[in-house]
Design a protein around this nucleic acid. Structure first.
Length: 272
DNA sequence: AAACCTCCCAACCGCATTGAT
DNA sequence: CATCAATGCGGTTGGGAGGTT
C-alpha cells in the first residue's frame, strides 16, 4: 500500500556512497542501532533516504559480511538452494552466512546461471567462441580486482550443511506464499536484518530495538575492541572496502578470524 | 599503445508484505 | 476493519575495471 516516498525529496543524495558517508552511517548505527531506517538519515545527518541507508548497511557495511569471491562450495550451495527456493535470494542468503541476497543474486546472474544453462554449458564457459573478442574465458575479474581471500578466507563450514534437506515438500519454487516456517522466520519476519542468520538469531531472542542496539554495540566493541570515539581512525571494514572497493583481503581475514573466534559464525551454520 | 568489448558490482526502482493506528 | 506508514525483497541498470584484439 502506501509506498514510501523514498528519495523523491529534493536534496537527497543518490549514487555511490563515499567513505565519509559510510563512516557516518556505521558510526550512527553503532551508537544507536537502526530501529527506524526512515528517521536514521536525518538523525545521522546523512542526505540519503532511509532505504538507501538500509541497503548500504545490509549489502556492504554490515560487519558480518563476508566479502570476496565465492568458493566452489558456496556456489554449489547456491545452485542447490536455488533449485529448492527459486529466486528467493533472501532465503538463500539466510543459509549462506556472510553473504547478502544482492551478492548472491549477482553471482547467480553473472555465472552460476550460465553454468547451468543446459545446452551451452561447457561452450559458454570457454567463451562461446574462443575467437572474437575472446573475453568470456578470462579468469574472473573479481579475482584480480579483489584478490581476496575468498578461497582462503571463506568459512569452510559455511556451505557444507546448507543444501540438501529443507523439506522436500516445500521445494517447489517461486511460490511466494508457500514458505516454510523456517523461511518465514528467517526471510520475512527478520525484523531488520532481512535474512541474515547471524543477526537474525541474535535478534530473534529479543526483537526489540534495544536488542539491536545491543547487538551492534556488542559486536563492534568486541570485534574492534576500540572505543567509538576513535572512529576518526579509519576503520578497516568499511574504510578499506569503501567506495573504491579496494582490496579487502586483510579485512576479510580479520573479520573471519574474529567471527570464528567468537563462535558466531559456526553457531549459525547448522541452520538448515 | 589504443580502442573495443565484456563482465562484475553496487545501487536504484518499484512492488509486496507486515505492522501500527 | 480499513487505511497508512515502513520495511523487505527481487529485478534491473549504470559505471568502472580488466582483458583481448
Amino acid at each position: 500500500m502506501g509506498r514510501a516516498p523514498c528519495c523523491e525529496k529534493m536534496g537527497l543524495k543518490k549514487g555511490p556512497w563515499t567513505p565519509e558517508e559510510d563512516k557516518i552511517l556505521v558510526n550512527h548505527i553503532q551508537s544507536f542501532g537502526h530501529s527506524n531506517w526512515r528517521a536514521l538519515p536525518k538523525q545521522a545527518g546523512l542526505l540519503r533516504c532511509g532505504k538507501s541507508c538500509r541497503l548500504r548497511w545490509i549489502n556492504y557495511l554490515r560487519p558480518d559480511i563476508k566479502r570476496g569471491n565465492f568458493s566452489k562450495e558456496e556456489e554449489d550451495a547456491i545452485i542447490t538452494l536455488h533449485e529448492q527456493l527459486g529466486n528467493r535470494w533472501s532465503a538463500i542468503a539466510a543459509r549462506l552466512p556472510g553473504r547478502t541476497d544482492n551478492e548472491i543474486k549477482n553471482v547467480w546472474h553473472t555465472h552460476l546461471k550460465k553454468r547451468l544453462e543446459p545446452t551451452t554449458k561447457p561452450e559458454e564457459q570457454h567463451g562461446a567462441q574462443a575467437g572474437g573478442a575472446g573475453k568470456k574465458h578470462r579468469p574472473k575479474r573479481g579475482a584480480a580486482k579483489k584478490t581476496t581471500a575468498d578461497d582462503v578466507a571463506v568459512v569452510p563450514a559455511t556451505t557444507a550443511p546448507v543444501s540438501p534437506e529443507r523439506s522436500p515438500a516445500s521445494s517447489s519454487v517461486t511460490e511466494s506464499s508457500s514458505m516454510t516456517e523456517q523461511e518465514q522466520e528467517q526471510g520475512n519476519t527478520g525484523s531488520s536484518a532481512g535474512g541474515f542468520p547471524i543477526k537474525e538469531e541474535s535478534f530473534t531472542s529479543s526483537a526489540s530495538d534495544a536488542e539491536e542496539f545491543q547487538f551492534d554495540d556488542t559486536f563492534w566493541s568486541e570485534t574492534l575492541s576500540m572505543p567509538l570515539e576513535s572512529f576518526d581512525v579509519p576503520m578497516e571494514p568499511y574504510d578499506a572496502l569503501g567506495a573504491s572497493s579496494v582490496g579487502a583481503d586483510g579485512d576479510l581475514d580479520y573479520w573471519l578470524g574474529v567471527f570464528m573466534e567468537s563462535g558466531d559464525v559456526h553457531q549459525e551454520l547448522p541452520q538448515i
